Amino acid sequence: GATAVSEWTEYKTADGKTYYYNNRTLESTFEKPQELK
């Protein structure tokens, strides 16, 4: 079976905060997504 690849990509803001962006739902969040835990 195919492994589900996380759609979340980790980015940093200009002031160094980490956030996560989902390229399928176009959602962004500062909290670590469930799929990455």
Rank of each mutant, 00 (worst) to 15 (best):
K32Y: 06
E10H: 03
T13M: 07
N23L: 06
R24Y: 15
Y21R: 06
N22I: 00
Y11I: 12
K32G: 03
T13E: 03
E10A: 09
G1V: 13
E35Q: 08
Y19A: 09
T3L: 13
Y11H: 15
E31N: 10
Y20A: 01
L26N: 15
K12H: 11
N22S: 03
Q34D: 15
K17L: 13
E7R: 03
Y19V: 11
E10M: 09
D15R: 02
V5I: 12
D15N: 07
E7T: 05
T13Y: 04
W8G: 00
W8Y: 02
V5H: 12
Y11M: 15
T18S: 10
D15L: 05
W8D: 00
K17R: 15
T18E: 04
T29Q: 08
A4M: 12
S28M: 15
E7L: 06
K12Q: 12
F30S: 08
S28N: 05
K12W: 07
S6L: 09
A2N: 14
Y11V: 11
T25W: 02
R24N: 14
S28L: 15
G16A: 01
K17E: 10
L36D: 08
K17A: 07
G1D: 13
A14L: 10
G16M: 02
S28I: 15
S6Q: 11
R24A: 14
N23D: 10
E7F: 06
Q34R: 08
T25R: 01
E7P: 05
G1R: 01
A4Q: 13
T18F: 07
Q34I: 12
Y21G: 02
T3R: 01
K37A: 14
K37W: 14
T25G: 01
F30H: 07
E31L: 10
N23Q: 08
E31I: 14
A4V: 14
R24L: 15
T13P: 01
E27W: 03
K37S: 14
A4F: 09
A4S: 14
Y11T: 05
Y11S: 06
Q34E: 15
E7I: 07
W8N: 00
K12S: 06
E31W: 06
E7V: 07
E31Q: 10
L26R: 09
E10D: 03
Q34A: 14
Y21V: 15
A2S: 12
K37D: 13
E35T: 07
S28T: 15
E10V: 10
V5Y: 11
T13Q: 05
R24H: 14
G16L: 03
Y21F: 15
T18H: 06
A4D: 12
E35K: 04
T18P: 08
L26H: 15
D15I: 03
L36R: 02
T18V: 12
S28K: 13
T29D: 02
S6W: 09
A14S: 11
G1F: 14
G1K: 04
N23R: 06
F30G: 04
L26Y: 14
T13A: 07
Y11K: 15
S6G: 11
N22K: 00
P33A: 02
Y19I: 11
A4N: 13
P33K: 01
Y21K: 07
L26W: 08
A14T: 09
E31K: 07
D15S: 09
T3K: 03
S28G: 10
V5A: 14
T29M: 06
E27Q: 11
Y19R: 04
E35M: 06
T29I: 05
E7G: 05
T29P: 00
F30N: 06
P33T: 01
T18A: 07
T29R: 06
E31M: 09
R24S: 14
T18Q: 04
E31S: 08
P33Y: 02
A4R: 02
K32L: 09
L26F: 15
T9L: 09
G1E: 13
N22A: 00
S6D: 11
T9V: 14
G1N: 14
Y21W: 10
K32F: 05
E35S: 10
E7M: 06
K37N: 14
A14R: 08
D15G: 07
Y19W: 11
Q34C: 09
E27G: 02
N23F: 08
V5G: 13
E10K: 04
Y20V: 00
E27H: 05
Y11D: 03
T9M: 12
K12P: 03
K37Y: 14
S6P: 12
K12D: 03
Y19T: 04
T9W: 07
L26I: 02
S28Y: 15
K17M: 10
N22D: 02
E31F: 08
E31G: 03
K12Y: 09
T9H: 09
S6E: 11
Q34P: 11
G16I: 00
K17T: 11
G1L: 13
R24I: 15
S6H: 11
A2D: 13
E35W: 05
E10I: 11
L26T: 11
S6V: 10
A14N: 09
E27I: 08
L36H: 08
K12R: 11
Y21S: 04
E27V: 10
V5Q: 12
L26D: 13
T13W: 03
Y11Q: 09
A4Y: 07
A2F: 13
